[in-house]
């Protein structure tokens, strides 16, 4: 199953007008964290917050809705959120931390929880993991370079970045510029090339824009806690849902992209194995489902 194990898959968006305004798509990560904080399901969250430099995120421990809102929106570069997990538990004293992770970070988190080899009393204090869909990630300098080279826009004027409909979109105050997403290839970090996970298969709840109409997100609930929190937010009226579009631009698109990421990664993994280079995953010949994230 290329989308991992899940309980339900829907389109959803936050009903909060303020969140809708500042969020990337449906504002699911922002909306759910604010809800979980208000309901004391979590007592804080590790998020990709703002830093001194525009568009360069910094892993941040958010303790209030305001701090969560300040981290809304996608930044297409590295934010080592796992770095802040111990800080969140030790320095901030969180007992039930939330965290937003991209798939590779989710994998770091889950490995820590199953094998907390050298990390004392941290793994059990992560109460909610919201996973973001991810096709690939860019070093900060890569992002700056292709924005100025491909979009011809001064980096400091960028107000929003977005990936959709096969294009990378750059919004400034008075202009929207786009270029084919293919042109960003070669700028991504190489560690992404062996990644088999687009939809954050191991999160409590996964969300992203792929397969969703504008202003909405696709959402997959996976674990018991994930399903419970999502349903509670829907029942409370903070998240609205509609059935997943099964068609070409909906589920079909999400499945297609998840599958193609896996196929590309498997090719890379097999090639690396042949060369004798290390890679933590099995070769396609070593596993039942050649596209499984193992």
């Amino acid at each position: 199953m290329v989308l991992g194990t899940y309980k339900q898959i829907v389109h959803a968006r936050s009903t909060d007008k303020q969140i809708q305004k500042i969020s990337q798509d449906g504002g699911i990560a922002t909306g759910l964290l604010c809800f979980a904080l208000d309901e004391k399901i979590i007592d804080g969250a590790v998020v990709a917050g703002p830093s001194d430099e525009m568009w360069k995120p910094e892993p941040t421990v958010a303790l209030s809705s305001d701090e969560i809102l300040a981290a809304a929106g996608t930044k297409y570069t590295l934010s080592p959120n796992m770095w802040m997990v111990k800080e969140a538990v030790r320095q901030y004293g969180l007992e039930k931390a939330g965290i937003v992770t991209i798939p590779c970070q989710t994998m770091g988190l889950r490995k820590l929880q199953s094998y907390p080899i050298g990390v004392r009393f941290v793994a059990g204090k992560i109460a909610l993991d919201i996973g973001i869909f991810c096709t690939e990630n860019f070093p900060f300098e890569s992002l700056k370079t292709f924005i100025s080279a491909k979009a011809g826009v001064d980096f400091s004027l960028v107000e929003k970045m977005d990936i959709g409909k096969g294009k990378f979109w750059v919004h400034t105050a008075d202009d929207v510029i786009s270029f084919p997403i293919k042109e960003t290839h070669g700028y991504e970090q190489s560690g992404c090339k062996v990644c088999l996970d687009l939809v954050s298969e191991l999160s409590d709840i996964s969300t992203g824009s792929i397969g969703a109409p504008d202003g909405w997100s696709s959402v997959l609930t996976r674990t018991e806690p994930g399903e419970t929190i999502f349903s509670q937010a829907v029942d409370a009226g903070l998240i609205e849902t509609k059935p997943m579009d099964e068609g070409k631009f909906g589920l079909e698109m999400l499945t297609k992209l998840a599958k193609s990421k896996k196929e590309k990664a498997m090719k890379e993994i097999d090639q690396r194995k042949e060369l004798g280079l290390p890679v933590p995953y099995k070769a396609s010949s070593e596993k039942e489902d050649p596209l499984a994230n193992v």
Partner: peptide, 18 residues
């Protein structure tokens, strides 16, 4: 040596945390 040099690092920060 074994992660960055081998084109495997994805910058998740788990190492720094642990």
């Amino acid at each position: 040596l074994k992660v960055v040099n081998q084109a495997l690092c994805i910058g998740c920060g788990t190492c720094a945390m642990s």
